[in-house]
Amino acid sequence: MLSIKNLHIHYGAIHAIKGISITVNDGEMVSLIGANGAGKTTILHAVTGLKTATSGEIRYDQYNLRTVEPSRIISLGMAHVPEGRRVFQRMTVAENLDMGAITFKDKARVETNREKVYARFPRLKERARQIAGTLSGGEQQMLATGRALMTDPRVLLMDEPSMGLSPILVKEIFGIIRTLHAAGITILLVEQNARMALSIADRAYVLETGAISMQGKASDLLRDDRVRRAYLGA
């Protein structure tokens, strides 16, 4: 359903992404792991149109995402949870969720989606009137995820959901990702926390300085010596 072919991205003279290809099939959870600065976020931003690619192909169903306006991507059933729990700090939890579906005209659908999000994250419902900036890190990550779910997406792009969270919260967030996947949402998960990502994903790609160095079934990569040495500290 999502296929990236021979993608090249430059930041000025710097060749950040050097011809990578990634496929995500319907219903799959694919993880993209790699160190800081490998280019993981850049790839996600190219998919959602926040960063313009130099060359290559990004296909999503029948659409060529390189020519689709970033603001239209949501309406194609794709949602993006950006890196670093980017919630609207000075708005309430409820307002944050409303922002997620702001491009929707269908009020009734927004209402049902909000109920679904609240059912999935009861804590967000409890804190609906609280200012988002006062939530804990884990709750903010929940809110960012909930906001993306307001559009009832088929594909979820998640950028470093574990960033800056305590190990317990990381476990909780990954539990949520697992249930989202079980609910049938296709997920492309970008992570530095390779162990967690590989333990829940179906397949994975290892990104090293802008190129894919390894790929395969996540469970195989978890046992691979090179991956273990480089990313799992074993």
Binding site: L50, P70, S71, R86, V87, G100, I102, A148, T151
Partner: peptide, 8 residues
């Protein structure tokens, strides 16, 4: 970034 991630 969050704003553009919700399609604005």
């Amino acid at each position: 970034i969050a704003a553009s991630s919700v399609g604005l």
